[in-house]
Design a protein around this nucleic acid. Structure first.
Lengths: 222, 222
DNA sequence: AAATATCTTTAGATATATCTAAAAATATTT
DNA sequence: AAATATTTTTAGATATATCTAAAGATATTT
């Protein structure tokens, strides 16, 4: 069976998971200390403990990697975090940038029944309000396909996961339209003549967006 | 402003609140130790701390009472506990005997926005699934007049508004008898010998209920 | 009011989770 | 490969939250 982890241990494990996902390499003590806003000495202590519990593979001075058992636990925590984010945004009307701190607390609630029921209540979502995938009960992640807004068919929807970061004037324009990372976009119509699209951004008014811009906006779909 | 309390401190404060509500007197170290399933020595330590934070009034060897500031905090925790219970039962389809442990965790989530939004989402409920009143944002409680089933006279009737929320085996038993919040109870007879009562629950068969259980069931009487 | 019983506190331990400062190991530069 | 820099660990402190055992205070009984 998986070991019981304290809240702190869960947070360390999550940090190690994210860092090794990003780099693909063993994770250093210092990088964990940065991520956790703590000191390397504290990290060393914790790594010995996590290693004893079998959730990480740790060699002194050589860095740390996550074990299968550890990955499973980390993914369960991430699953709960993202399910709660969906709940906060979809059901309680939070903005997507207000949910993180609350979800950081809710993700540690221990009740597999709760997670199961919450998942069902939310309609088994596969994506959180930032477009990140929600691992299933077994820790499987199905990465949502990302497409340019321009390629989506009418009556489908997606979440903005990438906008070109090179053009300040475009960013200002998008901001004025209330389109930002995490915005939920519903495509209502495509205009053949100029490839512009009729879209609704979150709960705002429908607007037309030029095909030129629509080509640069990446959406995570389903 | 109210002091920040740790999860443990919140739980002690809640226990002290409940104990002093029940007895009306100053609360003893031993009774808190029982309630918290810990040792009196630990309670003494905690009382000094809570006192220093101004949430209880404490005199060595003389027991403890809750201050206005402490009561406010306790009532906020109780408010959150009961709102979450409503959520679990009404929205996630939990049985009312499955919610206590999860609500014990959820009640400590710190976000006044969350509490506000949850309250609104649930339609501003005034009672939890066990019939206990939900304090409002200001800690006001509106209590309905209640009597133990055991105290009612034969040929009178009432509505179940409260059952103890701490004993899952009792809750399961009552559920099997079809007795739940809102059930209409008619008292047909009282047996002097053992204080058991002959009752009819809604439109079900008449049954005998032990005096022990009858003492714990609170009814709203016309 | 003395003896006894009960309740409460204090003192001293243990375990967690952190820190700083110093030591040790590893990596980089010259 | 020696010197230097960086990273990591260890050792020793501090604060919380608990415990047991012993001492002290209060309450009850005779």
């Amino acid at each position: 069976m998986n070991p019981e982890l304290s809240l702190t241990e869960e947070n360390y494990l999550k940090a190690i998971y994210h860092l090794s996902e990003d780099s693909g390499l063993d994770v250093s003590t210092n990088s964990i200390a940065d991520e956790m806003a703590t000191k390397p000495a504290s990290v060393s202590d914790m790594l010995r403990r996590l290693s004893k519990k079998g959730v990480v593979h740790y060699q002194k001075y050589r860095g740390v990697s996550i074990t299968d058992s550890g990955r499973k636990i980390a993914l369960q925590v991430i699953r709960k975090h993202r399910l709660w984010e969906v709940f906060l945004v979809e059901k309680l009307g939070f903005n997507w940038d207000e949910v993180h701190d609350v979800a950081e607390q809710l993700e540690h609630i221990k009740s597999s029944l709760l997670t199961q029921r919450l998942d069902k209540f939310l309609g088994h979502p596969t994506m959180d309000p930032h477009g990140d995938p929600i691992p299933d009960e077994n820790g499987e992640i199905k990465e949502a396909p990302q497409l340019p807004l321009a390629d989506l068919q009418p009556e489908t929807q997606g979440i903005v996961v990438k906008v070109p970061d090179s053009d300040p004037s475009l960013l200002r324009h998008l901001d004025k339209l209330n389109m930002r990372l995490g915005s939920k976009i519903m495509i209502h119509d495509k205009v053949e003549f100029d490839n512009s699209v009729l879209i609704q951004i979150d709960e705002h008014e429908k607007i037309y967006l030029s095909g030129e811009i629509a080509k640069t906006i990446m959406l995570a779909v389903k």
